[in-house]
Simulated assay, not measured.
Amino acid sequence: MATLIASRVHELTAQRRPFVHATVVRAQQPTSAVPGDDAVILADGSIEGFVGGVCAETSVRAAALDTLRDGKTLLLRVLPDGAASFPEAPGALVVVNPCLSGGAIEIFLRPMLPRPLLGVSGTATPIGAAVAELAAFLDLETTNPMAYAGASAVVVAGLGRDDEKAIRAALDAGVPLIALVASHTRSAAVLDALGLTDEERARVRPHAGLDIGARTHKEIALSVLAEIVKEIRTGVASAPAPAARSLLPISDISERSGNPAAGASARTVVDPVCGMRVVVGDDVPQAVVDGVEYWFCCVGCRDSFVAGR
């Protein structure tokens, strides 16, 4: 199982799909999970692998979606109702799961989000080459020239070679931030020649880069990437424009209506019996009572609810 999950982690990373890698790090008997068991949880709430029975999975699904939203790792402690807790661990999320068989487990959740994608046009120029080199150091993933779909930003550093073509390609791909490396005068001429709409022009940064008094090619690259990192972190360039999105931004991996399908995000509801958060899905116990749909953490809660109505 560990080999299969490791292969799946590699595959999902290569596909730039957001997911959570969950690993059981501690377990108390009786429980079906043992330390080292692991799984991946996708943005639709589906689980591949094993981190415990169906009751534990319910808590893992909900917590995993939270980590996809904020990008932070989490130690999830799942305790049966009325059980003595593990020794304190600062930063752990404790959930009481009334349908556990009596054991308690701790699961480390690590959200795996795609690295920001950066397009670089003009890698044959000294500045373009420096941008590509520094981008790798900053853990930005670079794309092939003109393959800009899904990019958070594009640096146009052709210094007069195909700059207009690169800008047009980036705009058509929905890239939210296009950094043009050029003087103020040439930047104005390039943008005027393109005949851009107001919306398109707002996405282009003429004479890109923060003012750090840069002189060398590497310093110019630093100033350009500093501006891009700033805008990515402040949300301006966190994701491509809607027409070109290949991935949901973190803020969109949230609670939505409808059953989750491959590639869709999931929604969570509250089990009306035990109060647990439940991720809606085809394999989740469900019942329709008086025309209203309800979902439950386990079959026991569902049967109890239906019997009481």
Results as ranks from 00 to 15, higher is better:
M276S: 08
S183P: 11
G258D: 10
L222I: 13
N97M: 14
S59G: 13
L65E: 07
K230H: 11
A173S: 13
G71K: 07
A63F: 08
V25Q: 02
P18Y: 04
F137V: 15
D37L: 02
V175C: 01
E57L: 01
D192N: 13
K165C: 02
R110M: 13
E133L: 01
D139A: 14
H184E: 12
A147N: 12
S59L: 02
R233I: 12
T234G: 05
L4Y: 09
A193K: 07
C301N: 09
H21T: 08
V60Q: 00
A202C: 08
R233Y: 14
E106S: 11
V299E: 06
T73P: 10
G122W: 14
V181P: 02
P272E: 01
G122P: 12
R309C: 00
A56G: 07
A202L: 07
P30K: 13
L159N: 14
P206W: 08
V279K: 01
G45Y: 02
R205E: 13
D44N: 15
S101R: 06
I212N: 04
A33T: 15
V204K: 03
Y294F: 08
T197G: 11
C99P: 00
L68H: 11
T197H: 09
R161C: 09
D66G: 09
A243G: 10
L118Y: 14
V24Y: 04
A64R: 04
L222K: 06
S183G: 11
C297Y: 15
N259C: 03
E141H: 11
H184S: 12
T13I: 07
T23H: 01
A214G: 09
T58N: 10
T185V: 12
V120H: 01
A262V: 14
P80T: 12
H207T: 14
R110F: 12
A307I: 11
D66H: 06
V156G: 00
D139L: 07
G160N: 06
V131Q: 00
V292A: 03
G82D: 13
L117R: 07
E227M: 06
S46C: 07
G102Y: 15
P240K: 09
S46P: 12
C297K: 03
A129Y: 05
A14C: 04
L109D: 06
G213A: 08
R233D: 15
P272I: 11
E227F: 10
N97D: 15
T73K: 13
P80Y: 10
D252V: 08
T125Y: 03
V96G: 00
S251P: 10
G52H: 13
A2V: 02
R245Q: 15
R245E: 15
A169V: 14
A157F: 11
F86W: 12
H184K: 11
R61M: 14
I253A: 01
V229A: 10
R245I: 09
N144I: 14
S101H: 05
V94P: 03
L74W: 03
Q15G: 07
V24W: 03
E141G: 09
V94N: 02
G308A: 13
P285K: 04
P126W: 03
R61L: 06
I127C: 01
R16E: 07
D198G: 09
L4R: 05
N144V: 15
